[in-house]
Design a protein around this nucleic acid. Structure first.
Lengths: 340, 340
DNA sequence: GCAGATGCCTGAAACGTTTCAATAGCTGGT
DNA sequence: ACCAGCTATTGAAACGTTTCAGGCATCTGC
């Protein structure tokens, strides 16, 4: 049933070494022999056994890509860009979804290490440093995605989320808003905390007290959670209600936007909204959503480039910390002044 | 550097066979020995080499999942459900994106076969039957996703898209609409063609001529393409303009919805819209989108279940064709009668 | 005291490659 | 004749597991 090089070699009347050479170093084989072997390969339907190659080589031609939530278009886009970059370098990508769960993350990390992948790109769940360090030390290159590492023990690729939060809130303040809200959570997630910190920094710099920022904590960064946050905001008495909301990501913002529309609260006239990530759906919303754009594609491809570089020449590789700057994209959802 | 079983065995003073048994059949090893070996494993930081295991076993513990477009939430959801199901069966998933490109699809199929994956779940690009059949015959189980196979040579899991198209248009007709449009493309994509056929069938059954359906062909099934289709519709003279549109998927519908909103054409009063897939963003749109729901999660998990079943016992496996029924979800975007 | 059973452990083969040193057959220069 | 330097090919070892047929003690029942 299973045809291996042995069968091909017998069929073509050569040794297995020659078959191997035809596949990997054709220039070493005489043209006639090469053709004969090739014909045997086709005739028998021979397919390489990559497990055996990997065993010999010591490493697989896979890159592990372990993301927090592939359902979120932000991560999907990062993954697609990383995949394109890795493919160009001859690597395939194993895509894993930790779903913000440390246990799932650990299982996948073990799986990837056992597979002897060439490297791992990971947007880590908080507090999973230990295992990552171990894997690193045992020789598998690791690049942190969307998270800066304290030490210089590994590469990381991230976006300055503090700056992003600052941009969003500065914009709202400039538009004259004084009663603001921050919607996001859980705060254990580093991205959420940073975006909040940036918001507070902007407030402080403009000389406003922290009281002017209502914080609405969500359990997740999803459409649903955004809708529920909307209910809370709508429930506030008119005079207490914020005139502008900064959401920790676009899913929240879109959920919030819908809830407001449903209740007849006009965006941006009654409530301005700024999201984060600038996913494709943000621009395509009925009221196009202002958002802090992260360079998703650059994030993914840079991460892949770094891990491939380290996988190829571990010795001469210097770790790098790449931090991209976010960029505010103003659209209709925040493009108005304060309601009278 | 690399610690294998040999090193562990030496360190613990046992044979490699015993180390292997500790890992795979601990009940065969005396408690004392077991602990000693375990300690050596921890001390040396031994990590299994899955390539070697696979070589021995002949198959990997991976399932290949090759989708048309992971950027589309429909496929993301299918993939996530498949992954959950596969994981429960002890398989990990390699996620690949063919991007509707036959060449990419072929490269990935070869890659997966060379890896000796346990099975492949594929939503095929049209006209790629040959390679799939070859792979099947060489012994890798294949399940077609979102596509029915003519023969009974393999399992497939799909949704009745003709019925889906029928549901959508019947609903619009029942609401009194007489000038309809179908937005979608390319028609080479089987899903698009089927949904269109369903639409036409509904029209015919209700005794309306095919002329009452304007067809707007899009190059892709994306948000952008939906927006451009919207421009075309808006450009039609009022008396020719359809009062209701059925889009071949939700991305088109959402793009269209935005373009209409931007132009002040009210949905559903001036134009009713029905999408297809019922992705999460459909319900969360500013005007919640009516849509034909496909059981995405069931699709994914059923596909995974079938492939795992065949991988586990190829001999006693009977191929199955599972076709789910779609379901119309009526929301605000089509919940009104004809404009006067 | 002995046959058989039981429990624990091991040596060696096998999985399908790649690679390296070795070989064999040339050509052409001396 | 012989050597040097090619080109084309090959045998065998190695990669790290799993598995299977024993082997050697120690026990059980007689």
């Amino acid at each position: 049933m299973a045809v291996g090089m042995k069968e091909v070699a017998a069929h073509a009347g050569v040794s297995v070494a020659t078959v191997s050479n035809v596949l990997n170093h054709p220039e070493l084989v005489a043209a006639g022999t090469r053709q004969r072997v090739q014909r045997s390969i086709d005739a028998l339907g021979y397919v390489r056994n990559e497990s055996a190659r990997q065993l010999r080589a010591g490493r697989s031609r896979f890159i592990g890509l372990l993301m927090l939530d592939i359902g979120n278009p932000f991560f999907t886009d990062v993954a697609l860009a990383a995949e394109a970059e890795a493919e160009a370098a001859g690597y395939a990508v194993v895509l894993c979804d930790s779903r913000h769960d440390v246990r799932r993350e650990h299982r996948y990390l073990e799986l990837l290490e056992e597979q002897r992948v060439g490297g791992i790109l990971v947007s880590p769940v908080d507090g999973s440093g230990g295992l990552l360090r171990k894997i690193r030390r045992r020789g598998t290159p690791i690049v942190l995605v969307d998270r800066v590492s304290r030490s210089l023990g590994e590469c990381c690729v991230a976006v300055d989320d503090i700056m992003g939060g600052d941009l969003a809130v500065s914009h709202l303040l400039a538009r004259g808003h004084r009663r603001l809200a921050f919607v996001g959570g859980p705060f254990e997630t580093r991205q959420v905390q940073d975006r909040y910190d940036g918001a507070v920094a902007a407030l402080a710099r403009a000389g406003h007290s922290r009281d002017s920022l209502t914080v609405i904590v969500t359990p997740l960064l999803t459409l649903d959670a955004g809708g529920r946050a909307g209910e809370q905001i709508a429930a506030l008495p008119r005079t207490k209600r914020p005139t502008a909301v900064f959401c920790a990501n676009d899913l929240l913002a879109l959920g919030l936007l819908q809830e407001m529309t449903r209740r007849g609260i006009r965006v941006p006239q009654d409530l301005a909204i700024v999201g984060y990530d600038d996913i494709g759906f943000a621009a395509a919303a009925a009221v196009p959503l202002s958002s802090v754009r992260q360079p998703r594609a650059e994030l993914g491809s840079m991460a892949a480039r770094l891990v491939v570089e380290e996988a190829r020449s571990p010795s001469q590789h210097r770790h790098r910390h790449v931090v991209f700057k976010p960029e505010l994209v103003v659209r209709a959802s925040s493009n108005s002044g304060v309601p009278c």
